[in-house]
Nucleic acid binder design. Structure first.
Lengths: 131, 131, 131, 131
DNA sequence: GTGGTCTAGACCACC
DNA sequence: GTGGTCTAGACCACA
């Protein structure tokens, strides 16, 4: 797995690690059961403090996205969520709206934005049906 | 203009003010040339320190979204951007991808997400064409 | 890095800090990746409030000139700009014109001014070509 | 004389008026002895507070650029300065340097900047010789 | 230890 | 009256 940290983004490093793990799973690059790099490996690879990796992995585990087994490492779990549909809708709507607002202030037209959204969708691997 | 601060969100107060001004403009609730509340008014209204408002207004001005005139107040500017189209595309793509990744981890189907996106789009007021 | 604040100039302190960082980079005294003094160090060194430094560094970061990493400090970024060439031309022309107007009112001849301009140019380190 | 105020520039209104009077003189649009608009006229024309005009005219008079005669108005004086050459050099150098630093951070090449400077010079009317 | 946010309150420039 | 700057000092997130 290849990690790239963008220090200019303002986004915390640990958050960027979480983002990338989630993204790779959504892209199908990381499959269920697959092993993640160890904390030490990853810390060496991207040259950051190991505590930062620990923080990222801990949060990924809290979200149910990975499972860490003492002594053997961290593994991708199956995608699941305990959030109600209304909560999920609220969260996603909020994010979509924020992006749309940004786009409007960048003078992007509705059509262009819709096209970009479609382009992005194509890249990811959705489940066919819930459950 | 009605402001609501969510102290539980973790998002800085000044950032929430920025978000809401941008959102109201994108919704068409705030028109070009319209006057924003004064720093002192707004600080009193939402019971926070005036400096926090100043910070929000300053950043909005730097982004070209409002114009502040010392002695008379802050006003909505016309929407404009200096960013090249490739930069804009990059930023928006990144945001869209992040939302899509979140949605996948919440087991939301492609169709549902597309529908939510359409629903959100309807609420906002896009420019027909740049120029 | 040596900072000098001129309290008689009327120019805000935070702005003078920004000016000096930009100037040192343009002079080649500060290289990409180099670490700036910490907020607290600099505040102590020039005997001003740390928040004033924070303000300066924040704006430098927004302009893409430095990158701040929470927990490790502020670093010189690579020079880059998102502005379109026409916007850049407009800004620089305006500044040049203002200086020329000043010079004329000071009865400086065209030749003298041209010479001064050349002299100034020599001091700075320009990129050879964009890209 | 045509005045245009840019409220988005951050430059104080009274300063912009000063800038424009000086610029028009340097361009040769305003000749020695020519009458400036009255305070009331100008205040009405650009829709601002008359006190702002008064402040601008007062500073122009202090700089010896205009002469106001009670009851008859303000007139362009002859260009003159009481600054020593070394002071003038210092002021202009500082302005030139600031512009060059900006240009470098905008990734403008030395050649382009030199060309822009020449282009600007052509627009103005310099005295042939001091004295 | 680093920078980031917010508060409380002073003083100043601008209109 | 308006916003802009600076100070002093608290608390928090990040690495």
């Amino acid at each position: 797995m290849q990690f790239r940290i963008d220090y200019g983004s303002g986004r915390p490093v640990y958050q960027q690690i979480i983002d990338q793990v989630k993204r790779d799973i959504a892209l199908g690059r990381l499959e269920k059961g697959e092993k993640l790099p160890t904390v030490r490996q990853l810390a060496a690879q991207i040259a950051i403090n190991p505590n930062t990796i620990v923080k990222a992995y801990r949060q990924l585990e809290r979200e149910g996205i990975i499972i860490t087994k003492a002594g053997s490492g961290a593994f991708v779990s199956s995608i699941d969520t305990n959030l109600t549909i209304s909560v999920r809708k609220k969260i996603i709507h909020k994010e979509l709206e924020r992006t749309i607002v940004e786009a409007i202030h960048m003078q992007i037209t509705k059509d262009t934005l819709s096209q970009w959204f479609k382009d992005c969708l194509e890249k990811f691997r959705f489940a066919n049906r819930k459950g």
